[in-house]
């Protein structure tokens, strides 16, 4: 069921996002440097991408898998550096491979032992992360000092974003959107009812792997900006916020993309106001503010709305009880 109010909301969000730069320029005296523009653009692109893909992660109950996979990417970054030096391509490919290995390891633990999902995720998360830290410490001891900036993959470092990264984000974002659009009904069905999808003739395993790949790709792209620890927030917060406003998957994905873009852009702008505020964490805080707003205010589902309805119910009930006596 498509709710009409959602589309204006998306338009308003995007308009607000576009106006954000000039507004902050006039209200807070933000100096619109080239860097600020690039970072804000990168933040919104990443927010849009992870918002859209994150919807599937949340609906498949894989929120925490996202957390484990982003932590698992760290050793891949380090190994990529050791093998190829500081080339973004190599680092991202390494991150992707490590993250994918983490995914397989979680699956292997679940398949061959009686350890439950939460512990399996925890084991992979912390072991891969520790491997990454150990490798980074080793790299720091190397004589060639070109390793500068690998730390940024832990907490994210928006200032490191350059124009070519934007092109990469845009290109991959376009590809992901294309895959989502083409395989929309397959992804939807596999997420809602995997058994029926397989019985109905879809290649369940293949679609499942494709969807997991999309999530891994998104996580890897976000590492440079948000860092391995906070990436899961970029992935799931916009989706959870969007879910409160609509009952249609189409709208949820588009709204999550818009919310993610808004959080990414405005987080970047706020952090540009004060050099001591790191960008990645600020984006996460904005995204969570959106979640809090949505959970409280969303019509029909929100906490406030439900309380109002409860009060009304109680009043109705009371007046009805009084009637026969009157």
């Amino acid at each position: 069921m498509a709710e009409r109010r959602v589309w204006p909301m998306i338009v308003a969000l995007l308009a607000l996002g576009v106006l954000l730069l000039p507004l902050s320029q006039s209200l807070f005296g933000l100096r619109l440097t080239y860097t600020v523009r690039v970072v804000a653009l990168g933040g919104s692109l990443l927010g849009a991408l992870s918002g859209a893909v994150g919807c599937f992660a949340v609906l498949r109950r894989e929120s925490l898998l996202g957390d484990a996979l982003s932590h698992a990417a760290l050793p891949g970054v380090a190994i990529g550096f050791l093998l190829a030096g500081r080339q973004l391509g190599a680092l991202l490919v390494g991150a992707g491979i490590a993250s994918w290995l983490g995914l397989r390891l979680v699956a292997a633990i679940l398949r061959t032992t009686r350890i439950k999902q939460d512990a399996a995720l925890g084991i992979v998360l912390v072991s891969f992360f520790a491997a990454g830290i150990a490798l980074l410490t080793y790299i720091q001891s190397l004589p060639e000092a070109s390793q500068a900036g690998l730390d940024s993959f832990i907490f994210g470092q928006a200032a490191a974003i350059i124009e070519s990264d934007i092109a990469l984000l845009g290109g991959v974002g376009l590809a992901v959107t294309l895959v989502l659009a083409l395989l929309w009904k397959e992804f939807k069905l596999i997420t809602f009812d995997a058994d029926f999808a397989s019985a109905g003739g879809l290649r369940g395993g293949l679609i499942d792997a494709l969807l997991s790949t999309l999530i891994v790709v998104t996580i890897v792209l976000g590492l440079q900006l948000a860092g391995v620890i906070l990436m899961v927030g970029m992935l799931i917060a916009p989706a959870i916020a969007a879910r409160q406003w609509t009952h249609s998957l189409e709208q949820m994905v588009v709204l999550a993309a818009a919310l993610g873009a808004f959080a990414g852009g405005s987080g970047a702008v706020i952090s540009a106001l004060d050099s001591d505020i790191p960008t990645g964490p600020m984006i996460i805080v904005v995204a969570f503010a959106l979640v809090a707003l949505s959970i409280t205010l969303a019509p029909g589902r929100g906490v406030l709305w439900r309380q109002l309805r409860q009060r009304e119910n109680r009043r109705n009930f009371r007046s009805r009880r009084l009637e026969p006596g009157a």
Binding site: G200, R243, L249, Q251
Partner: peptide
Amino acid sequence: LVGYVPQRGSVDWDFPTSVLDVVTMGLYG
């Protein structure tokens, strides 16, 4: 040739979709 009705409890009924949409899923195959 085959139609399948899984157990009702096998899916998440809080999934954001409409009744019409779920029924249309029968045609995806």
